[in-house]
Amino acid sequence: MDTLIFRTIAPYLASLMVLFSVFVLLRGHNEPGGGFIGGLIAASAFAIYGIACGVAPVRRALYFHPMAISGFGLLLSALSGAVSLFMDMPFLTGQWTEISVLGLPIDLSTVLFFDIGVYFVVVGSITSIALALEEREHA
């Protein structure tokens, strides 16, 4: 898999896949998609990048350790669930608000952050698995 073509296009392919994964994540509440699928797509992107160009560039690109990303995701999900506690509602009750960005109304909800947390957990954990195995490959 160490071909020149693959190595050349892998970074672009991976970037596109990550972008697509974010799109899938954000539209998940209304159309097919969501945190799990988005996370898997992004993880695949990093796995491909790693196979093509080695693990070190991926780790540098990610900046954080993949498990740290995963932990952040879990924390984010838990915290977004905790918001409702302050409103005297049971843990994980969805809270909704609408904000206006540049004149466009945008739905903002704790549920969205919960899904983003799921995304990070899946990205982090599975990238970590894939990179750990690839690292052994190159070691």
């Binding site: 998609g33 879990l74 669930g81 549920v111 698995i129």
Partner: peptide
Amino acid sequence: AHGRNIVNVIIVDFRGLDTLGEIAVVMIAG
């Protein structure tokens, strides 16, 4: 729950606690 994708709404809202547990499992496996 303001969502049109019923599957996703179940995962992140109606059964959110299950999902929280499940992503914890995924992380622990990692």
